[in-house]
Design a protein around this nucleic acid. Structure first.
Length: 780
DNA sequence: GCTTAGGATTGG
């Protein structure tokens, strides 16, 4: 058995063959015999199942060791595994991210992508020709509430731990559709022959409608009322199998139909004979037995023999004929609101339409996402106009989503665009208002089997030139949809992590430390006065302070006037000058060794800020005072030295207060670090610090922008302190990410790399978030 | 508080 389910991660020892010994990922090495070894880790990335030309399959996954993960670098705790053929197919079906797996019977091969993804230098390979058929994966399914039911899969369900306590509860009986009696409450099974996606009723609920049948050949209408969309049946196509609990049969216009009652529930299964029996439901307490599985399979077989139940063939963009109505499976590239009653969706399915397509153009600002796809030709991207009541369903759509649009109308539209023949017809697609013929649209889950053909077609499209360097099996998950999402954002990641993009709700539920790729909008940020985001930071003691303003610096100089002692040191040449401030005298001390050396420092005593600014245009200036007979820095609340427009601060905790004689040799090359070292000063670093409130609809969180803030804005914090243009650049970026006016709908989506970590705050450990490895694309 | 809808277009 190549894939086997364990009941929990803890007791895996009692369920895997006893001769197998765990080996740590960091101990794996080429040439090592791994016959009696297993590797254990959590699935942190699961690539798509890729079908090869020769009818074989391959799938790449990354597993991370549970122990050690906080202390070890990635390359020692995480490893890629390449699964082949049946094992790849089974794994794709039965295993998901967050599951803990034990892999055994693998061989080791050098990882061609280790330099890029930072994983272990080897890959595990399982199920290929080279491992002698002994490869096996043991799975401990993650007990994660957010887990989609699609993951509790197939034959192995009998071993799924969540079901143990449910076996004693109610046994459900199901009524055949020809045995329904009006005004009774029943449970029924059926094959869907017609359906409408949920729509708003005139009452309090959403309404969806199904017509189902069963081997009694009676057709029964089902009207489902539910206030929450996620409680509605997830029917994707006719032929799907549904199981309804607690529906009321009633008589209407001479036939019997059913409708929801209190305690109603519905589960949907794919209708394809032989495909895994995966319940589609959002319910967390699903009653599902081996008998249910048999019923689904029996209905599938029966339906497959009924020619009258055959669904329409799938229509790709390449198959479209003018004026036809069809169900369209596609990926969203971009959307734009045309007016209150119409939203434009730009979509594709990887095939090319034989008819010219209307390119409905909108202002770039009004469009979310991008159609600037690598290798894109005009015939690939369709414009879909969504009208009236369906607009609501488009509001949460994000570029990259997979959609099915029901009863889409291919409308030839005459355009006056100049062509050799004059006027010409272009196809535009309309999703008309209303629900006639099941008109509507819905998101298809990423792992839906209905998407396989589309995903293959998209993979075959010419990739961008940067991506074709390594087309080996190991890069199988570098699929067009992801590169597409990158292109549609105003912020992009700069890291090489191969992480699956997750919603913020997954980030907030996780245990730190961890790194995530996510996509979110900026809701608010602090500080609103952007100059306050510039901070001074001591890398030695981690102290953080604001940059003093001009007034505070000026008054510090002013206070020092009365304390001027005008001393000297043997290594100094001292002379006196008039200050720019009338009646004020200042001492100019020069290191005697550096006489006439224009690169040397000038120590100024009793000067006003204005004096320092003037002189520092030509020479680096250190403001000083005399304390206990020693020359000392004036005050750490003012810069320890000025050079040109640059001001460098010292840390009051980590610097000595007296100013030692700098050796002239050390100052040959002007560099603030060398100067600070020569003077015995711990320099403070300029840094940018912001708090961003991120939101993606699933959750929101406050993330710091700190370590990589310079990358984020594409500026140097140090230069920003004195450069108005850079300050403007930060302002423009924030205005774009979070416009002062406008709603969340108009804000760009940001592709972010987000780290979670624990930090002590007031003696208490709190979870913090930080944006890393992310740069914004700033308009100039 | 206990309804809502009950398939069936041709159009922006």
């Amino acid at each position: 058995m190549p894939i086997s389910f364990l009941t929990s991660a803890g007791d895996s020892r009692t369920q895997v063959p006893p001769h197998l010994q765990q080996i740590a990922i960091r101990s794996l090495d080429l040439g090592l015999s791994c016959l009696d070894k297993f590797v254990k880790g959590k699935v942190v990335l699961k690539g798509p199942l890729v079908s090869m030309d020769n009818g074989k399959y391959v799938l790449k996954t990354v597993i991370q060791e549970l122990e050690h993960q906080q202390n070890l670098p990635r390359g020692l705790s995480s490893i890629g595994a390449v699964l082949f053929n049946k094992l790849a197919r089974d794994f794709s079906e039965a295993v998901n991210t967050e599951d803990v797996v034990l892999m055994t019977g693998f061989t080791l091969a050098p990882s061609p992508t280790a330099h890029k993804d930072g994983l272990h230098s080897c890959n595990l390979q399982l199920g290929g020709a080279g491992d002698g058929g002994g490869a096996c994966v043991y799975v401990c399914p993650a007990l994660n509430a957010s887990r989609s039911p699609a993951h509790s899969v197939t034959r192995s369900l009998a071993r799924h731990p969540a079901r143990a306590s449910e076996t004693q509860v109610t046994k459900y009986t199901y009524t055949a559709l020809n045995k329904l009696v009006p005004d009774t409450i029943v449970n029924i099974y059926g094959v869907v022959t017609f359906f409408k996606q949920p729509y708003r009723s005139m009452g309090t609920d959403y309404c969806s409608f199904l017509k189902i049948t069963d081997p009694s050949s009676v057709k029964v209408s089902c009207t489902v009322f539910q206030g929450e969309l996620h409680n509605h049946p997830q029917v994707f196509r006719t032929g799907d199998i549904v199981r309804l609990h607690r529906v009321k049969a009633q008589s209407f216009r001479g036939s019997i139909n059913v409708t929801t009652t209190h305690g109603f529930s519905i589960v949907v299964f794919d209708g394809t004979v032989g495909s895994p029996v995966v319940p589609r439901t959002s319910s967390r307490k699903l009653h599902f037995t081996a008998e249910d599985e048999q019923t689904v399979e029996r209905l599938r077989r029966w339906a497959s023999e009924q020619t009258a139940l055959l669904g329409a063939a799938a229509v790709r963009l390449a198959d479209v004929e003018p004026r036809m109505y069809f169900d369209f499976t596609c990926q969203l590239l971009a959307k734009a609101e045309m007016d209150r009653n119409c939203t434009l969706l730009k979509v594709w399915d990887g095939t090319e339409c034989p008819y010219p397509l209307l390119d409905v153009s909108v202002e770039p600002d009004a469009q979310h996402g991008s159609t600037a796809v690598p290798g894109c030709r005009k015939g690939l991207v369709a414009s879909v106009l969504v009208y009236d009541d369906h607009i609501k369903m488009t509001q949460d759509l994000k570029p990259g989503s997979y959609l099915r649009i029901y009863n889409l109308h291919a409308v030839p539209q005459t355009t006056s665009a100049a062509s050799p023949s004059g006027r010409s017809d272009h196809l535009c697609f309309h999703l008309h208002g209303g629900t006639s013929y099941g008109r509507g649209l819905r998101i298809l889950p990423k792992d839906s089997p209905d998407l396989q053909e589309l995903q293959r077609a998209l993979e075959l499209l010419p990739a961008s030139s940067d991506d074709i360097a390594d087309v080996s099996l190991m890069d199988v998950w570098a699929t067009p949809p992801e590169s597409l999402e990158e292109a549609s954002c105003d912020a992009e990641r700069t890291c090489d992590h191969t992480l699956e993009q997750v919603p913020l709700s997954s980030v907030t539920k996780s245990t730190p430390p961890k790194t995530f790729h996510t996509r979110a909008q900026l809701k608010t940020f602090q500080p609103q006065k952007l100059f306050q985001c510039l901070k001074l930071y001591c890398p030695q003691c981690n102290a953080l302070q604001n940059v003093p303003d001009e007034e505070a610096i000026g008054s510090a100089f002013h206070r020092a006037v009365g304390t001027a002692a005008f001393g000297s040191e043997p290594w100094l040449l001292t002379c006196f000058r008039e200050s720019t401030e009338p009646g004020r005298k200042m001492a100019v001390h020069l290191p005697s060794s550096s006489h006439n050396d224009q690169t040397s420092l000038i120590f100024l005593e009793g000067a006003a800020l204005e004096d320092v600014c003037q002189i520092s245009e030509h020479r680096a200036v250190v403001p000083v005072r005399w304390h206990d007979g020693k020359m000392s820095f004036l005050d750490f609340s003012v810069p320890v030295f000025f050079q040109g427009s640059a001001r460098h601060y010292g840390c009051r905790n980590c610097s000595r207060s007296e100013c030692r004689e700098p050796l002239p040799m050390e100052l040959q090359e002007w560099d603030e670090k060398k100067v600070a070292e020569a003077l015995g000063v711990q320099l403070l670093q300029y840094m940018l610090l912001m708090k961003l409130e991120l939101d993606d609809g699933t959750d929101s969180l406050q993330a710091l922008l700190w370590r990589d803030a310079e990358i984020f804005f594409g500026v140097s914090a140090q230069d920003t302190a004195t450069d108005q243009q850079l300050q403007d650049r930060i302002q423009r970026t924030m205005d774009r990410l979070c416009p002062p006016e406008g709603t969340m709908e108009t804000r760009p989506w940001l592709n972010l790399c987000l780290a979670t970590y624990s930090a002590e705050e007031a003696g208490r450990s709190t979870v913090c978030y930080q944006v890393l490895n992310t740069k914004t694309v700033c308009p100039d």
